[in-house]
Amino acid sequence: MSHSDSFPSPFPLRWAGELLQLLPERALWWPDARVLFVADLHLGKAAAYRALGQPVPGGTTQENLARLDALMARLAPHRIVFLGDFLHAAQARTVLAAVEAWRARHAGIAMTLVRGNHDGRAGDPPDALGIDVVDEPFLLGPFACCHHPQTHATHFVLAGHLHPVCRLHGPGRDSVRLPCFVSDAQQAVLPAFGEFTGGWLMEQAPGRRFHAVGGDAVWALPEQE
């Protein structure tokens, strides 16, 4: 089997005593509970820009949903928790129709949306989608599911919002920015799942760990002294 035909390679680790997998698809998998965590999908973002007259590419909503379809087919989750910013803004009918068709394909899977800042602007997803919508923090097992990075007195925080990226340096002045998972002692920030979302270059800090995402792999970056 060639590398291009192989499955993506997740990175296993433990947070809050639970075995988790950092996925190259820029999502987090909790195998024992069969829960998939997805941050910052931003469905309809490109359409919102086009509505303002910006010449950005189309098809990103369908591409994002197709990537999510493939991930769900491989993992068969019982629940998906969206860590905020499911919809980017109030959406055109075409975007909502695509989301409704996607949800209908996965009617048996429980879904929860933790409201993010863009969800406040877009409004809650239509009731017909069957997505439970909650405010942060949403407690699930040992995890506090949030949109904004924060601390919690009793639970390990899983968050999004920042769209974290890291910079890898090559020979000379060569460098590349890659999406990454960023974790501290009691919280982790997931990379944005959605395309066309940009990224925030996260700073090094004592005890902070970075796991870069590139191609079909996730790998740990060396810890800083």
Rank of each mutant, 00 (worst) to 15 (best):
A110E: 14
P125H: 10
A101N: 13
P57L: 04
L178S: 05
D69F: 00
L22H: 00
F193S: 03
A212N: 09
D5R: 13
R50T: 07
V134W: 09
G120N: 14
P179S: 06
D85H: 10
A97D: 15
T94R: 10
H78A: 15
L129V: 01
W30M: 10
A97H: 13
H88E: 12
S2R: 13
L20S: 06
L65E: 05
L221G: 08
F156K: 08
D5E: 15
M202K: 05
R79L: 13
E25Y: 00
P179Y: 02
G198N: 14
P125R: 01
F11Q: 06
L22E: 01
H211W: 15
A66E: 14
A220G: 07
G58A: 15
G130Q: 13
L36F: 10
A51Q: 14
F11G: 02
L178P: 06
H42L: 09
T94W: 11
A217Y: 00
A104H: 09
F11I: 00
F82V: 01
A220K: 12
T112G: 12
D135P: 11
P164Y: 11
T154R: 12
P24L: 11
Q62L: 15
P222V: 13
P24V: 05
L20K: 05
M1I: 11
L13P: 02
L65T: 01
S183E: 14
F37K: 01
E136K: 03
L65I: 03
A66V: 01
A144F: 03
A153K: 04
S4K: 08
D184S: 13
D132Y: 00
P206S: 12
L139Y: 00
Q21N: 11
H152G: 08
S2I: 11
T61G: 09
L22M: 09
D85V: 02
